[in-house]
């Protein structure tokens, strides 16, 4: 029998420790937030709370638990990003847009930036495309992101940005169509599978690429 009918003993035996670790971590993180006056630190500490959540979900230890973790952590990421953006927007208004007062000569000629990005990014994107789904999206997105940060070219117009956002919307529709195929025409499940997995891949990867474009504004200003 490849798949057991009940959850294996080992998984059951480590459920309680894992759950308690989740609760303790959550408690520590929450305590940290409650004593924290600094908003940025509070934002960083929510990351710890997220870890606690993932530990509790993972502790169930079935395939379903894994399926619940997988998108959950991508969502966590997206929320951190949105909220950090709001924080920055708020501070920018508070301080009166004085962000670019210092003209920064930021030249960093490291070997790794001229040769490695192309190679690493290529590996990651190819591997991500092979994986597909959320995982592939995150991996390929990481590749795109690294490439974008490390490249010297600058001044990406907003149109390109909107193009990327558009692609991701289309990808979402492809995935929806794939989902519907599963229930409307179950005999075409293979088509549905490919549409779904490629849709999610493009969607997640293109969104990750956006982060790289944003981050380059800060880290590689010339």
């Amino acid at each position: 029998m490849i798949v057991p009918t009940v959850v294996p003993e080992f998984t059951v035996s480590i459920f309680i420790p894992a759950l308690y670790v989740g609760l303790i971590t959550g408690f520590i993180g929450l305590l940290g937030i409650s004593f924290q006056k600094n908003d940025l630190s509070a934002l960083i500490l929510t990351d710890i709370v997220g870890v606690a959540m993932l530990v509790i979900v993972a502790a169930v230890g079935t395939d379903l638990a894994e399926a619940l973790i997988l998108p959950g952590l991508v969502v966590e990421l997206a929320e951190i990003m949105a909220i950090s953006e709001i924080l920055m927007s708020r501070e920018m208004r508070k301080t009166g847009n004085n962000a670019s007062i210092f003209p920064l000569p930021f030249a960093m000629d490291m070997e790794i930036f001229s040769t490695a990005p192309n190679f690493l990014a290529l590996i990651l994107i190819a591997y991500g495309v092979f994986l597909t789904g959320f995982t592939g999206g995150a991996v390929a997105g990481g590749g795109i992101l690294f490439y974008v940060i490390a490249r010297r070219s600058r001044g990406l117009p907003i149109k390109v940005w909107e193009g990327i956002a558009g692609i991701s919307g289309v990808a979402w529709c492809i995935w929806l169509a794939g989902f519907l195929i599963f229930f409307i025409a179950p005999e075409l499940w293979l088509l549905g599978l490919f549409m779904s997995s490629c849709g999610i891949l493009i969607k997640v990867a293109s969104k990750m690429g956006l982060i790289g474009i944003m981050a380059r504004e800060d880290l590689k200003r010339e």
């Binding site: 920064l104 690493l120 940060i149 490390a150 800060d218």
Partner: peptide, 22 residues
């Protein structure tokens, strides 16, 4: 995959630290 992502994380940290010092 971990071996590929590790240097990326390290590089990101390095960039941020250098920039912050500046």
């Amino acid at each position: 995959a971990a071996a590929v992502f590790d240097p990326i994380a390290t590089v990101v940290f390095l960039m941020a630290i250098i920039k912050l010092n500046e």
